[in-house]
C-alpha cells in the first residue's frame, strides 16, 4: 500500500513527530511504500536546520533526513505555516529580506495543494498531532 503522513506537532514539545517517525519505520518494515510526509501547523519546526538538541538525544530533523536518504521519502513543508513561524528557505529569506535561513533540502516548502495531491496518491493518509 501507499502511505502518506501528516505531521502537525512540534519537535520536543509534542510526541506527534516521534510517533510519526516510529510509524514510518513500521510502515516500511511491513513492505509498504511511504509516498510522502507533509509537515503542517507546528509540525513545520521539524524542518529547522538550526535545531540543536543535546548530542545524546534524537535529532528529529536528522531522523527525517535519514528517512529521505534511505527511502527517498519526500519531506514537504507547508509554506504558509512555515513562513509565519520563521522557518524559511534561502530563496524565501532573500525574498523577505532576512539575513539567515533554516530550511534546506531534503525539506521543501510547498503549498497545501501538495497535501491534497499526497492524499489522492495514497491508499492511507495518517495524521499525527496531539
Amino acid at each position: 500500500m501507499d502511505y502518506g503522513l501528516l505531521v502537525m506537532g512540534a519537535p520536543y514539545s509534542d510526541p506527534a513527530p516521534h510517533s510519526a517517525l516510529r510509524f514510518a519505520e513500521a510502515v516500511l518494515a511491513r513492505g509498504h511504500r511511504l509516498t510522502g510526509v507533509f509537515f503542517y501547523h507546528d509540525g513545520v519546526h521539524n524542518a529547522s536546520s538550526l535545531m540543536t538538541p543535546p548530542q545524546d538525544e534524537l535529532n528529529l530533523r536528522k531522523a527525517w533526513k535519514a528517512l529521505n536518504e534511505r527511502h527517498g521519502v519526500p519531506l514537504d513543508v507547508c509554506i504558509a505555516a512555515a513562513l509565519r513561524r520563521g522557518i524559511v528557505s534561502e530563496a524565501e529569506a532573500a525574498r523577505h529580506g532576512h539575513s539567515a535561513y533554516n530550511l534546506e533540502a531534503p525539506f521543501e516548502l510547498t503549498g497545501l495543494g501538495q497535501l491534497l495531491t499526497l492524499q489522492q496518491r495514497c491508499d492511507r493518509l495518517i495524521t499525527f498531532a496531539s
Partner: peptide
C-alpha cells in the same frame, strides 16, 4: 505494537486522529 498499529491502518480504509 507499532507493527500492529500499521496493521490496523491496513484493515481500515478510513482513519481519524483526535487531538
Amino acid at each position: 505494537n507499532m507493527d500492529g498499529f500499521v496493521a490496523l491502518t491496513e484493515q481500515h480504509e478510513q482513519s481519524v486522529t483526535w487531538y
